[in-house]
Nucleic acid binder design. Sequence first.
RNA 1: GCCGAUAUAGCUCAGCUGGUCUAGAGCGGCGGAUUCAUAACCCGCAGGUCCCUGGUUCGAGUCCAGGUAUCGGCACCA
Length: 543
Amino acid sequence: MPTPPATPYYITTPIYYVNDQPHIGHCYTTIVADAVARFMRLAGHDVFFLTGTDEHGQKVEKSAASRGITPQELADENARHFVTALGYVGATNDDFIRTTEPRHEKQVQRVLSTLIESGDFYLDTFEGWYDEGQEEYVTENQARERDFTAFNGKPLVKATEENYFFRLTKYWDRVREWIEAHPEFVQPDARRNEVLGRLRDESRDVPISRTNFTWGIPVPGNEKHVTYVWIDALLNYMTALGLVDAEAADMDASRHHYWNASGPVVHFIGKEILWFHAVIWPALIMALRDAGRTDLHLPDAVYAHSFWIREGQKMSKTLGNFIDLATIEAYCENFSRDALRWFLLTQGPLGATDADFSHSRFVEVYNADLANGFGNAASRVTNMIVKYFDGQCPDDRGDPTNGDYNWPEITGKMIATATGQMEQLDVAGALRSGLELSNRVDQYINDTKPFKLAKDPDGMPEVGRILYHCVETLRIAAILMLPAIPDASQEFLTRIGIDPTSLSSSSLTWGGVQPGAAITKGEGLFPRADVDAPPPEVSASGS
RNA sequence: GCCGAUAUAGCUCAGCUGGUCUAGAGCGGCGGAUUCAUAACCCGCAGGUCCCUGGUUCGAGUCCAGGUAUCGGCACCA
């Protein structure tokens, strides 16, 4: 069967701000995008999965100064923390872009030149009430509320600043119309409504350069201005592909196909940065198109997930209850990386409401889904094959059905369901579909009782048939769950004679397990966890 | 303040355009059966004022109004 050319699939996380320490929020976004990327690769797509770090801005400049190091040193140091975090959670990103890299900076400058020339970026003076203590502008309304007094009690001053502005007003209606016409562009729906609501207000142009600090990309031709971090940051999605100007970035065109009309472009983000991705970003692309770059088009989906809270409480700096890297590491060590990924992916805040990271819930889900669910099913099936067939995979004698069970049909439907769910970015749903297949195997064993049939030598052919149905179904379940639990899934596949490094879209059809293959039992994939045990200890050295 | 959303079993949630909802799933809990398996799995059990009040309708978790509660977005902070 000739394989059709692989459809590209481009998926991104936000680039993470290096002034922060990595925490569960970053890890969650990364894991979700990673799971989608892994699934789409299995489904036969030509996937490009991008993440990286956002390294410019006043905060970085200040933090570095306060520590007596250069901003670049600070960025280097913290970018390493994010790379470490990617390793913890098992991210399979194809590239890691940093906004201080020349390939990025050169292309951003190219965008600036283009849009300054087209007139959508223009120089103007901004006048407003400035709080000299806080070093920030306050809006006219806020100023009035505070009686024109700064935080430190001194009066606010009327300050003027020269800025480049982006003519957002020109694109305001077009962006709104685009979002209205493309319901899948901003997801989930509740977030889309928020954006549309705000787009019904009056539009304003937005400043896109700063002059009060220097750690940023200089505006070409007017170097006392540095590019506002958000413009800088958003463009990473294109610069990593060399889409703006491959030559200037010393890149080639080999990644350009990831962002054209033939495959989806999906941005996974947290809800706090929705506005930039849902409005500023498409407007920016429209501006580039108006400036002649008609080859560039809008992304297909911006998916804004909500936040994790911890044991019912919001995570905050003042409470100091962030689930930081040390805690994440502790969970990985106590339960396994797969366990963490499974919990985050199936219980996470993909919808519009926040989700709770509660330890007791974590253990419940771990036991129910992984230990008692897939792990136990894998264990009982491999054990019976070892016990009754000396570890040699039996065959189903050409009949993959048994009474009401039509396994090619059952698994085929579930594969289709999971694929559809994943395409809709319903990651939790897709994973549950895989788990459901494993549950069906448990039910099947209880229905057909191969362990009873095995007591009579004449029953062995039937036992073999049943067990083949079981391993084969579990193979498919393992592949469907692989995006969440790659380690255990690959371990299981290896035990049943499947090479996990050579999976392809054809792996998702009935009949992958070879009769006669050596099957091993091995240790339990997910040992049952003690519900009453306290949460894992976090070593004090963690930062 | 402005705009928006949600309120359903102990927990997390499904219930689209009103009538197989005398209200469902998963988890937890309880009981039973079973032994291939990780005290696992399988089967059965949940009697919840569907937030409150009023309204529309032959008929409302499902529509409308008001109320209450919770939450989110809007602050040039990336």
